[in-house]
Amino acid sequence: MMPGQKNSGNLKPKHQRLVLVGLAALAIGGAAALGFSALQDTMTYFYSPSDVQTKGVEPGQSIRLGGLVAANSVQRLPDGLTLAFTVTDTANAVDVRYKGLVPDLFKEGSGVIAEGRFGPDRVFVADSLLAKHDENYMPPEVADSIKRAGEWKPAATPAQPALPATPASRSN
C-alpha cells in the first residue's frame, strides 16, 4: 500500500504508521490546546472578586461570583429575609445580598458561588447560591482538634474590601 515496503532504506510500514499516529496526535493536541485557550473565558464557571476588578463587569450584567464567605461577615438584614455577606478571594472582596434558600454547606469560611448581578451601588445581588466545598475530608473530631490546636488554615481571613464596603443597614 505504501511505497518503500520492499525498500529497506525507507521506514517499515509499522514505523511509518507510528510516525503518522504521532504526527496526528501532535496536530490534534495542538488544535485542542489552541481551542481551549481561546475558550478560556467562556469555560470559566465563575468570576473571583479579583476577576471582577480586572475584567470590568458592568452593573446589571448577569455573572457568577465565586469565592469564600468571609469570616464574621454573614448577617441577616433587619427585614429578616435578606442575607448579607462578603465573598473574598483573600486579595479582593465583594459584598453580596441574597434572599432565599441557603444550601446546607453554606457557612463562613466555606466556598460559595452566587449567581446574580451588581447593582448600581456595586453590591452584588444574588438570585441563587451554590455551596462550593474544598478538597479536604476529615471526621468532625479531627476538624475540632485541628481548630483547637489553632492550625486551621486561615482560608477565609476577610480581605480588605477593595470596593467601598457598604454598611449592611444602608441597603434595601
Binding site: F36, Q40, M43, T44, Y45, F46, Y47, S48, G66, I113, L130, K132, H133, D134, E135, N136, Y137, M138, P139, V142
Partner: peptide, 24 residues
C-alpha cells in the same frame, strides 16, 4: 486546575499528598 469550577480540586493525586483523612 485550568478553569474555575464548582467541582472541587483534586484530593488524592495532587502535590503535597492526599487531603483526605486516613480513616476515609
Amino acid at each position: 486546575d485550568w478553569w474555575n469550577t464548582l467541582h472541587q480540586p483534586a484530593s488524592i493525586l495532587r502535590r503535597g499528598g492526599p487531603t483526605i483523612d486516613p480513616s476515609m
